[in-house]
Amino acid sequence: MEITRSSFTISEIRDMWQRRELIVNKNYQRSSSVWPDSARTYFIDTILNRYIFPKVYFYQVFDKTRKKVIREIVDGQQRLTTILCFLNDDFPLTSRSVKYQGKRFSDLDEDLQQQFLTYSVEVDIIYSAEQSDLLAMFTRMNAYTAPLNPAEKRHAEFEGQFKWFIIEATGEIGPRLVNFNVLTSKQAIRMHDAEFLTELAIVLDLGIMNKSDTSLTQIYRKYDKSFPREAEFRGRIYEFMQLLEQEFAPLKNTFITKSYVCHSLFCALMQRKYGIPNGNEFGTQTDGVFFTNLQKTIDALSALAGAHELQDISGPYGPYVEACLSTTHRVKQRKIRSIWLYNALI
């Protein structure tokens, strides 16, 4: 078996497909089902914004009947057929594409069409291989792939509205969470940023709960087919991130940026300004603002962060510190932290 690394423009792939020199090998494709519009839009938007996507695999054979070389798609069917459908104007882009919502390929200006058609797709071309060789190759490739964590499994299982909301939010907010030291780069690579944002969505949907794979999966399932609160969730989560980066910038590199503390800070802020389900358990005042005195709020939050860093359980912030030191994702500790952080919003 031989493998050659190559690349083709989307224009070249389209031409090969139209000449039937590129076909789908259904022996290797997991499913012939079509991605939902949200998934197709996100993928096309990836190309329009010149981001890369994982390479695809072709198996090159000689068709004796037609006396010509044929390339079979052995991995990448959904990506390539989505590209071809978009070129054929089969679907418009949804709101998942901020810049190009509502546009089909023919609606794009000439320069953007040219940019799309000249986009380079990385391809590995496999030669001189039997079916058993191909199966062995993919088996070996998968053997060296790290097992999926729960967040990755959810994104493999679901294809609906909530998943693509989280993917979009992760693309926009994930790097900013790393920059603000809420998460590490290593955590972001394994989708802890998607998990964190899902937890914030759960707060808006149901209030403060224990962190569990069950609750995380349930919100994906609940909003898989329809997500009527998407705009609300997006607005509040993005508002929180902007608040961290701007008004709360002095808190960067303090213990307020611990991910579990940031979760509780989100609960406190959302209850103070908007109200969250069962939020009256820790904060009765919901008056449309996050705080009235920024400097006093920063000072109060800094004091909590300092006590946490020193692990000062005997001082005036003892209950808060204790709630930061163990079982940090349980509802009891989350509520205690939220009460203290709510009261720091002056």
Rank of each mutant, 00 (worst) to 15 (best):
P175S: 06
H155I: 05
T214P: 02
I202N: 08
Y144R: 08
P150T: 11
V203I: 15
L206W: 14
P147V: 06
T184L: 02
L183N: 03
G207I: 04
A188F: 05
K211G: 06
R190I: 13
K163T: 01
A146Y: 10
N142F: 00
T198P: 07
R190L: 09
A143Q: 05
A143N: 03
V203E: 03
V203T: 09
R190T: 15
L197K: 11
A194P: 02
P150K: 09
G207N: 05
K153L: 15
T198M: 08
A156Y: 01
V203H: 02
E157V: 13
E172P: 06
M209E: 14
S132Y: 03
R140S: 11
R176A: 10
L206V: 06
L177R: 03
A156S: 13
L200R: 04
R140T: 14
L197M: 13
N142V: 02
D193V: 10
T214G: 06
A151T: 11
L135D: 07
S185P: 04
N210V: 08
H192Q: 14
D133K: 00
Y144N: 11
T198A: 12
S212Y: 11
A143C: 02
G160M: 00
A201K: 04
M141W: 13
N179C: 05
D133V: 00
G171E: 13
R154F: 02
E168G: 07
D133W: 00
V182D: 01
T184Q: 00
E157F: 12
E159L: 13
M209L: 14
K186N: 08
V182W: 03
A169D: 07
E152T: 11
M209A: 08
N149F: 03
E172A: 14
I189E: 14
F162H: 12
D193C: 11
G171H: 09
H192W: 09
Y144I: 12
I202Y: 07
M191K: 12
F138V: 07
A146M: 10
A201R: 05
P147I: 04
R190K: 15
A156Q: 04
D213P: 05
L200V: 08
S212C: 10
Y144L: 11
L204P: 00
N210F: 09
I173L: 15
L183V: 02
F158V: 01
K153N: 06
D133L: 00
E130S: 15
